[in-house]
Amino acid sequence: MKRLSIFVFLAAFFCTNAEDGFLPSFITPCELSKDNFKNCVREQIVKSLPLFAKGIPELGVPSIDPADLDDIHIDGNGLKMTFTKAKMHGLSNIQLTDLTIDIGEKEEKFKLDLIGNLSVSSIYNADGKILILPIKGDGDANIYCTNVKVQINSKLNHFKDSKGEHFKLTTPNYKYDIESTKFDFKNLFNGNKQLAETTLQFANENWRQLMDDLAPPVIKQIVKTIVKSINKFFSKVTISRIVRDYTEA
């Protein structure tokens, strides 16, 4: 749940308009030649996270809060579960905890560490068991994740077009950890309150088993969505416009 957000936040630092040099008021450019370049980047990311996550239509950067997710399927360990019409909420409130960025080096790359509370709303369908306890139902689902920590590493490659040289995010990889998760599934066992409460309590006490299956596809989708949005943004903005004192290869 984590990786997608990180790339959007980095892009905020580089933000400018490829056509007329417009720079959003919440962004101050950083100069590569200055000793405080990395600190400047950090400050810009921290300042711009909540604003950038809402999207910049003028630059083709979509909102990621909420972020639409593809259908999620769990089929294993005696449990079949599907989440449809899923949306991720909370990326605009995520915080930067660490930053490593190398621009102008032989191999350009960055590493971001983020933390925040995230949630997923969706329609679920479940049939099977969580460990030893049956679960069956369909209806609205909400999943609340506390202190989601995400570390994202990526390379910054280059490509050229008629306007100049551009960045492109490639081969991103990530790590994540979740402090706790709470599930809220409506209409379990066709509304049988006693069975529903028992199963929901058990699911929340054993949340890691569900999240071991649920978290990886969610995070993968988030990252894919964010990388696509960021690369679309980079395709409109040349490096020379977004990083001052940068010398093109």
Rank of each mutant, 00 (worst) to 15 (best):
K155M: 07
L195R: 01
F9K: 03
E107W: 06
K182I: 04
G76D: 05
M1G: 11
D184C: 01
V148Y: 06
D71Y: 04
I123T: 15
P57D: 14
R42S: 09
I27V: 15
S162R: 11
S235Q: 05
S121E: 14
A53G: 08
F52V: 15
N231D: 08
D177P: 02
L99E: 04
D161H: 06
D184M: 03
P217C: 11
E165G: 02
K85H: 11
N125G: 03
N39Y: 00
F22H: 13
K236P: 05
R241F: 14
R244Q: 15
E179T: 14
P57F: 10
Y124T: 01
T16W: 00
G116F: 01
H166P: 00
D212G: 01
L99I: 02
D245C: 06
T100D: 09
I94W: 02
I226S: 13
E248F: 01
S119M: 07
L200F: 02
K111M: 12
N173F: 00
E58I: 02
E19L: 10
T97A: 04
T100Q: 12
I132W: 07
G76A: 05
V227M: 05
V223E: 14
Y174M: 06
I45F: 04
G116L: 00
A86F: 05
T171L: 10
D70N: 14
L4G: 14
I64C: 08
G55W: 04
P217L: 11
I72M: 00
E19C: 03
A196G: 10
N125L: 05
D212M: 07
I123S: 06
